[in-house]
Design a protein around this nucleic acid. Structure first.
Lengths: 110, 110
DNA sequence: TTTGTATATTGCAATATTACGATTAATAAA
DNA sequence: TTTATTAATCGTAATATTGCAATATACAAA
């Protein structure tokens, strides 16, 4: 039905899924990589960097913003977007914890 | 149009997006967390663990398998699924590299 | 005020995802 | 061989995502 049964998973599983989903598109990966590279930016830069129209880029930015991964501050008549390192840190911490768990038990069956 | 313009991104961006997308659902997060916890399992176990029907679980397993995150070996008349730590490692390495880049430049503008 | 620039929103079409019942396929057990 | 068990596949419905043209909004500059 295209609708996820979120109520049966843990809060962590749901919130991590939302964060991960926000990065599950090459355009949004390109956006955060660009934000990391320039370490501050305005939206029109991003439109120029991507092979997408301005409305489509705006939509991807909105998804990243909704997920909390980026934040935007109005600056004159443009908008300064940058990473929310705290939220990004949560995602990184999740994968780090998986990494640690995998380190511990190397006795896989396959 | 619901179709991603993959040809304009780098191979890394596209392949990372595919890996990340494979985990962009709480059911699939629950599956890999369960696989890590038990360190080997068969599909029927997973069906019991999740609030989803057997066909739906099978479909999620297929997506994880297509992405390369898990592998399955036939074992009697059931299937032993487990993580492909090499592929999982690539994903972890990506987030680690992002983490390292963020460490270096703390002078964000927002 | 008018004009230009930057970004968001709306509306829509094409396609993808999520979920499940019914069925199939393959092996195990009786 | 028959029956049971396990997992995959098919078909389909509901919903979500991706993308863009057109338009709206908001501010800056002239």
């Amino acid at each position: 039905m295209g609708v996820t049964k979120t109520e049966h998973y843990t809060d962590k599983q749901n919130s991590n899924a939302l964060l991960i989903r926000a990065l599950a598109h090459p355009a949004r990966i390109a956006i955060i990589e660009y934000l990391i590279k320039v370490d501050s930016c305005i939206c029109s830069d991003i439109v120029g960097e991507l092979p997408l129209s301005q409305p489509t880029v705006s939509q991807h930015l909105k998804e990243l913003k909704t997920a909390g991964i980026i934040k935007g501050n109005i600056e004159g008549n443009s908008i300064c977007y940058c990473l929310d390192e705290k939220v990004m840190g949560k995602l990184i911490a999740y994968f780090t914890s998986i990494s640690n768990q995998l380190e511990k038990k190397k006795n896989s069956c396959c």
